[in-house]
Design a protein around this nucleic acid. Sequence first.
DNA 1: CGGCTGATTGAATCAGATCAACTGCTGTGG
DNA 2: CCACAGCAGTTGATCTGATTCAATCAGCCG
Lengths: 235, 235
Amino acid sequence: MEARGEGQGRSSVVERDLGRITLFADLESAQLRALAEVAVRRVCARGETIFHEAEPGSVLYGIVSGLVRVFKTSPVGRELTLHQFGPGDAFAEVVVFSGHPYPATAEALEDTVLVGLPREGLRQAIARDPDLALAMLGLLSQRLVVFVAKLEQLSLKEVPARLASHYLVLAGEKSRFQLDMPKHRLASYLGTIPETLSRVQSKLSDAGLVAIRGHEVEILDRQGLENVALGLAVV
Amino acid sequence: MEARGEGQGRSSVVERDLGRITLFADLESAQLRALAEVAVRRVCARGETIFHEAEPGSVLYGIVSGLVRVFKTSPVGRELTLHQFGPGDAFAEVVVFSGHPYPATAEALEDTVLVGLPREGLRQAIARDPDLALAMLGLLSQRLVVFVAKLEQLSLKEVPARLASHYLVLAGEKSRFQLDMPKHRLASYLGTIPETLSRVQSKLSDAGLVAIRGHEVEILDRQGLENVALGLAVV
DNA sequence: CGGCTGATTGAATCAGATCAACTGCTGTGG
DNA sequence: CCACAGCAGTTGATCTGATTCAATCAGCCG
């Protein structure tokens, strides 16, 4: 449970938490204090559901610490992971501006501390501060770009191409990196299932494009991997 | 070609056009006039490409009249239609706020009149007018909701379920309606190909759920169709 | 040492894509 | 007015990527 102290004490804790959210990092301290007035702290245990798909609600969350997964579930139990968020990230912006219920389910993957911002308080802050408005628009646009890429992958690319691009994104400039989630979740993130992911991973290894040991991946043939990612080469 | 008249004349034409875009419909006339100063009119012939995927750019478009399709193309030539937009709609908001190049290609399906708003002018208008900011946030959120639904459909539902939901959306309360695009484009919109769409459509007809004559669809068994849409029933 | 979860492998199956042929409609030009 | 080119749509036969089901294996922790 949270401290229930009134006024200054509670508020300044939340204010500090808010400052850690990227979206609010550049706010004037007066703005931040105003937001802190309406913000609520929420602590979730690992495994806890933060909100459920189709549940009506109007609060945007920022992650102070912890890890959160946002996903959709099919009637037959398969899952599609839409995002995995860490400290500093904000999510569920959509319910604040669209009036829709939560379009997906959010779950805490670790013990997680959140700051929640209810619709009205946030809308007022945005109305008062154009920079915050633009920052929020940037965040949503960013999200849209990611979704368009995901749609393209799901509809037009096969699993090897999706996995190859994912590796390339994670790798960036480097040639070795760590997978940031267990493989069954990576499968759900790529819109497939663990068995298929496993087979595809072997194929990429056998083709000499990557080497995998546990959660560590090394890129051996970047060009080849890019060709697979673009669908130009088969594995 | 467009009239090239300076000042009042040209500006007021654009101003009238801007007022027809839903996003700007509620703007004060002073705001509208300011926007009109930076807006450019653009006329596209049927079949013309408005912008191409990966092309750098920074202008948001509103549709004064005509019809526009936004889509992604795969290396092997398959297409995924992301949206079809008509008069009053705005599109390509993403490039204004994210700095990314256009994430998809836009094509005029009919002779089309557009108003284009370059990044800086629009950002200034938004900074000045909180209501416009909120309207824009609402639009982007709306878009995100649509994309999440599309992602779910592509990854978790099979083609019959996608087609059934599409019918239900188009139908609304009514039991008869017109398809708003030719079938090959509907296929691309649902993430499949014309042959498959054709077969699935027959299945829905054979199961007595719908009746189809040309572009007119009649819903015969709403409950049954909803079950298919949810993936609860097979056809 | 069990027992659990995550990961892998194999065999069978299936939805959807591909390839190819054919129908029907519409508009154009001889 | 008919012939025919051309595109939209349908239908059939086949192929294939991916899922399903089942069994096994590896690592980890109590």
